[in-house]
Design a protein around this nucleic acid. Structure first.
Lengths: 131, 131
DNA sequence: GAAAAAGTGATAATAATTACTATTTTTTGA
DNA sequence: TCAAAAAATAGTAATTATTATCACTTTTTC
């Protein structure tokens, strides 16, 4: 069904080479560095295809923009309630185990766990302001 | 800062009286039953205010539409990978405890846990089709 | 290597959400 | 109680992320 596409390969490479969980616009700008005439529509189309094929996940929608992740393994995110940054975080092995058990017991396909809080950068700037 | 507003009260009532985690459009249609000339902009503005004040949470974005929940207590959702329905589900007490511990230990503000799978209705129709 | 299938760039269209503004509702405080 | 100030609203226009379209190019098939 799906042919090979050099654009798709580049888009996937961009997503796998960052931990920033970027939106389509960011992926587009990164791709333009090596493929100057790639179009934004191509990025959107391929992100949808890559999501469909399970090579990429749509991890959250922040400020109206969909955010993508090239890491499809089960992992947890911190979403900053101020700046919207999406950050990978570690969780206790007890929690990881309980999550996986709940998933398996109920035959759920996959899990999305987000904690919300200020990220380190926003905590910093918050401190500066209040001192 | 915020005055009283009968529209806001109605919007909150609508959200608290459903378990369907509706989008703004649904809230708007429900409100129109008692306030025929309420405007969609008012619904959006008040949903944002209610989210800000913590009376409502934005629980997910499904098919490009933000979905709201009038139940602000920590609870878990099943999101149907076919129809997009958002459904409250129970989790084991072990998982609930591990989640709360992780939250407290790291001083996270709040948690959002979503499992993805077919909902019961979509499982049903899937069965019908494949037999 | 030619026909068929899939992908692309450029651009137009769609649709959810936000902004704007004249008017109305609510609050304030004398 | 009531008039001025503050906040909210309806109606509508503007914005913006995303999707659709289509003539053309790349990839696959056989």
């Amino acid at each position: 069904m799906a042919n090979y596409s050099s654009r798709r390969e580049t888009i996937l490479k961009v997503l796998r080479s960052t931990k920033s969980h970027p939106c389509a616009e960011y992926v587009y700008e990164e791709c333009r560095k090596s493929i100057p005439n790639i179009s934004l529509g191509t990025v959107y189309r391929n992100l949808a295809m890559l999501e469909q094929s399970g090579d990429v996940i749509k991890v959250a929608t922040v400020d109206g923009r969909d955010r993508y992740d090239g890491d499809t393994s089960t992992h947890t995110h911190l979403i900053c309630t101020r700046c919207g940054r999406v950050i990978d975080i570690d969780i206790s092995s007890e929690l990881a185990l309980a999550l996986e058990q709940e998933r398996a017991n109920n035959d759920y396909q996959y899990i999305q766990l987000n904690f919300y809080s200020l990220c380190d950068e926003c905590k910093q700037s918050e401190n500066k302001q209040t001192i």
